[in-house]
């Protein structure tokens, strides 16, 4: 069943076209990679999907329970409410708040009690706050962060901050999870653990995942299909094996290596 359909998506920043005529299709339950050299436009795609930027043109359709929602033009919080959640390439935790609060905040969209209940601590407040606290602790346990629940997010080691960002995204109870370079800055052991974790949460939370990653070992190992972007254009799409042997992909990456040398 189709979950997300991106059609002819284009984004220009002044003279620079960061994404051009991009088509992506995600089916329910898939784990898909989005790769490409630096500056290819991957993060821009995430920002378009989550409403941080408005597309210059094109459409983004999200299908949930046979209901089609056009995401183009919606504000980010509405998009989150439709079932998309994300992490950020340059970690954007609520740094000066505790680990626990970071997760609790992300449960906001499902809160039903109103202002009066919060001011007067009515029973609905107490009941739902308890549910929020329990659910948050359960998420923290999955990421082995429950022992650090009262620490400030900024004091966590880098790898744990990345984990916390995923936990926070899951707290919004998404159908589609967008991970922007979740393994960046991790050592091989941490990356291996993250790989297992991503596989595991996909099953557990019944997720569809779209993943940006430079670490090819991770991408090739867990992604079922891969999209390759270069200069904002989709240059290849296919299974890991197909991508590995694709000439244009090799060229794009070689080009980068050459320019780096």
């Amino acid at each position: 069943m189709q979950l997300l359909a991106v059609e002819k998506l284009t984004k220009s920043f002044g003279g620079l076209t960061a994404v051009l005529n991009l088509n992506i299709e995600l089916k329910q339950g898939e784990l898909i990679g989005l790769i490409g050299p630096n500056g290819a436009g991957k993060t821009t795609v995430f920002n378009l999907l989550t409403g941080v930027y408005a597309p210059t043109s094109g459409s983004i359709t999200f299908c949930k329970n046979d209901e089609k929602v056009e995401l183009h033009g919606l504000k980010p919080h509405k998009i989150c409410k439709s079932g998309l959640a994300r992490t950020f390439q340059n970690i954007r935790l609520f740094k000066d708040l505790t680990v626990f609060d970071n997760v609790r905040i992300a449960m906001h969209k499902n809160v039903k009690y109103g202002l009066l209940s919060s001011f007067l601590r009515l029973p609905s407040y107490r009941r739902e706050e308890k549910e929020i606290a329990d659910a948050s602790m359960e998420l923290l346990r999955i990421f082995e962060l429950d022992g650090k629940k009262d620490e400030y997010a900024k004091n966590l080691p880098y790898g744990e901050q990345r984990h916390l960002e995923i936990a926070r995204a899951l707290a919004t109870n998404p159908d589609l999870l967008l991970l922007d370079e979740p393994a960046a800055g991790m050592n091989p052991a941490e990356t291996a653990r993250l790989t297992e974790l991503i596989k595991w949460i996909r099953e557990k939370f019944n997720l569809t995942i779209l993943l940006i990653e430079h670490d090819m070992s991770l991408v090739m190992k867990i992604c079922e299909r891969i999209y390759v972007l270069d200069y904002g254009i989709l240059i290849a799409e296919g299974t890991p094996d197909e991508i590995r042997s694709n000439k244009r992909v090799i060229e794009a990456y070689l080009g980068e290596d050459v320019s780096n040398a």
């Binding site: 950020f88 609520f94 740094k95 609060d101 905040i105 906001h108 009690y113 001011f119 007067l120 707290a171």
Partner: peptide, 30 residues
């Protein structure tokens, strides 16, 4: 104080911390 310790209050605090992240986590920052 009660307000700040509710989900609505936490939404306000999240805006102070990081508006983009708060929106992305489903908070109507406006």
């Amino acid at each position: 104080r009660n307000f700040l310790k509710s989900s609505h209050g936490r939404a306000c605090i999240a805006i102070r911390e990081d508006e983009v992240a708060a929106e992305a986590m489903g908070i109507n920052t406006t």
